[in-house]
Design a protein around this nucleic acid. Sequence first.
RNA 1: CUUUGCCC
Length: 248
Amino acid sequence: KHLANLLVSMYAKCRSMGDARTVFDDIREPNLFSWNILVSAYAINGDFHGARAVFDRMPEKDSVSWNTMVTAYARIGRIREARKMFEAMPQPDTVSWNALLAGYAQNGHLLEAIELFKKMPDKDVVTWTTMVTGLAENGYLDEARRFFELMPTPDVAAWNAMVAGYAQAGCLIQARLMFDEMPAKNTASWNSMINGYFQNREVEQARSLFDAMPRKNSTSWNLMIAAYAQRGHLQEAREVFDRMPDKN
RNA sequence: CUUUGCCC
């Protein structure tokens, strides 16, 4: 049954809702995990009506079920619906608060996000990074920085959000300073900085970072190829493509 | 085995 649940989840992530549903329907006695996975499956594929239908029909719910629905509405910008879900929850946990917070932040409602942030009974590293990201990507870099500096223990994601925010605003020097000062980098850190250079037409800088990065993931490769192609450098795009190890 | 934040 764990395997069947995993299968449903995997099909959903591959956007194969038909297969996901078929596997689910063949599960003898779906447990709470199975139901939650099915709700999430519809949500991932943008079908919040489907998600809602399953949610209303499932025999029992836990906070994961509720949180999945909050997220499903928040992601597509239906904040009022997300909020209604949140308010109907018996016991909202930090994930619930964070999901709603991300809904506001991702849809550009920063004032409401700040308001909600202040009301939160518990804050974790996700709470803080959600704020940093939301502020930074909407151009409120000074505010983002303030939140970042107030974070008890900024993790890589928070650092990356600041790097991406500065880069997106065209502040490559600041972005690079933070990139260099990061206590630990992951592949997303490198990708953020490289993407920043490309967005600001610093093709050579982007290229040398790409060549220097210790590990590349599919985003790294796609980034380089797309950026070269967009700028009309079809020969280098092709050359990078040919060097890519797993072309699938 | 399922839900929230960073690059795409």
